[in-house]
Amino acid sequence: MASLNSTEQQRGISVSVQNLTKTYGKNKEVLAVDSVSFEVKKGELFGLIGPDGAGKTSIFRMLTTLLFPDSGSATVDGFDIVKDYRQIRNTVGYMPGRFSLYQDLTIAENLHFFATLFGTTVEENYHLIKDIYVQIEKFKTRRAGKLSGGMKQKLALCCALIHKPTVLFLDEPTTGVDPVSRKEFWEMLKRLKEQEISIVVSTPYMDEATMCDRIALIQGGKILSLDTPDNIIGAYPDTLFAVRSNNMYDLLRTLPQYENIKAHYAFGEFAHVSFKSGNASDLEKFLKQKGLSGIETKTVVPNIEDAFIKMLQS
């Protein structure tokens, strides 16, 4: 990137974040975002993945000009988030984690309202929201407060899109939404990418991370890793085994006693295990000695969650 000149950079890069830091509290004692840097390319679906309280929302609020950073800088569409906040407000779409449209206005009125605020009309950009809007259109005279969770998310996405933003910020758009609607929602995001809209999305769900082009794993305000989901998984250094027995509770209690064990944690109906040395058959023997029965081991391909847990533990 360094070799490109600034105009080309502006064309290729949607969001650029450099050492962004945010603290809260009187004495700045709560470090919410700790010198975070990343770039989002134009038309990219970029995910911020991390547990609750990792600092995702603080990053979003700074990038959408709702919050001033303590230090560091960031640009959205080449506009500085502090100096050029007006321009940014013209070009970005933001969907906060909490549903925050007018509950006493109908679907159609909310949409019309946000279109007009941006000096445009629903008709002008209808093609952007058509796929999503048709799903809620039959309720368009219903007040937003009376919609189901999934429909609210769809309406919020429509309202964030109606002014044809160049960058879309979605803060935990699928939290509290049923699995079917979640899947639908991510498919909608993929379709939006084709419209050349850059999307920055945050989620606490690991399974959604693989839907992104690139992800940043965040914990405690710091980026632990930033790459494509495949590369992050591919960089997983150890061979991973899944272990099961008739008594999972005893299994999880017994595993730490095995001296060659490197990492172990419950993962669905299995326990995931990696070794410093030795292999799975040695472990099976050890577990049998300890009186466990019905032991089953197999190698597994690590997924993004394994990668994330690995990073948290190291």
Binding site: T65, L66, R86, Y94, F114
Partner: peptide, 9 residues
């Protein structure tokens, strides 16, 4: 809603 209003022009 004020947050949503604040990110508009």
């Amino acid at each position: 809603t004020i947050e949503q209003i604040n990110v508009t022009p």
